[in-house]
């Protein structure tokens, strides 16, 4: 299943800028370094890069180095991943 999202925010710069559009595909083939849209309780859909993925869940990170000191976005269920980014405009 394909979905299009508009990026809002700066945390994924320089690779994904505010107002970029991303095309995602629902897939179970998620691996480290993939960029995903994940739906988190209370926060909705967010765009992040996969820092690690395993049986316990997925850890996320931002691309923008200014946010390096807030890496603990937490461990999330893989099932919450809405889709993997396969194209950006």
């Amino acid at each position: 299943m394909f979905r299009i999202f508009k990026v809002s925010g700066e945390s994924m710069k320089p690779n994904f800028k505010n107002d970029h559009f991303v095309l995602t595909r629902k897939t179970k083939n998620i691996k480290e370094n993939d960029v995903v849209v994940i739906n988190l309780d209370h926060y909705g859909n967010i765009l992040k890069r996969v820092s690690s993925i395993g049986q316990n869940g997925v850890m996320l990170k931002s691309d923008n180095p200014i946010y390096e000191s807030t890496p603990t976005l937490g461990l999330h269920e893989v099932s919450k991943i809405v889709g993997k980014v396969i194209f950006k405009i």
Partner: peptide, 21 residues
């Protein structure tokens, strides 16, 4: 066409900050 928003903010309140770094 309905285009949704994917937030790329870093204000997700993990609230884990430490000046030790």
């Amino acid at each position: 066409m309905n285009i949704e928003i994917a937030k790329a903010h870093c204000d997700i309140p993990c609230k884990v900050y430490d000046p030790a770094i």
